[in-house]
């Protein structure tokens, strides 16, 4: 459990440092979000399709998680 917590903290630090430090020169101005504002550029576009996929893979494979929660809440695995 200790190792896990350590890992989680590391991930958060990496995320935070990406957010606050290293990336201050990466990216675009707020008014340059025209392309990224398109529906097909939304990372959670097609949520229903991904939910169906995740349910299938959750019940047919030993892995889950990554994109979202790994939990299942169904008796399919």
């Amino acid at each position: 459990m200790k190792r896990i917590i350590l890992l989680m903290i590391t991930a958060l630090i990496v995320a935070a440092s990406l957010a606050l430090g290293g990336c201050s020169h990466v990216g675009v101005k707020v008014w340059e979000h025209d392309i990224l504002a398109k529906p097909e550029m939304q990372l959670d576009a097609g949520a229903n399709d991904r939910a169906l996929d995740d349910h299938i893979y959750f019940s047919k494979e030993a892995s889950s998680g990554g994109r979202g929660f790994a939990g299942g809440g169904c008796g399919c695995n």
């Binding site: 707020v30 008014w31 340059e32 979000h33 025209d34 504002a37």
Partner: peptide
């Protein structure tokens, strides 16, 4: 906020 940034983006473009 979303619309304002789109407006600004289109105006600048």
């Amino acid at each position: 906020d979303r619309l304002a940034s789109l407006a600004l983006s289109e105006t600048r473009r």
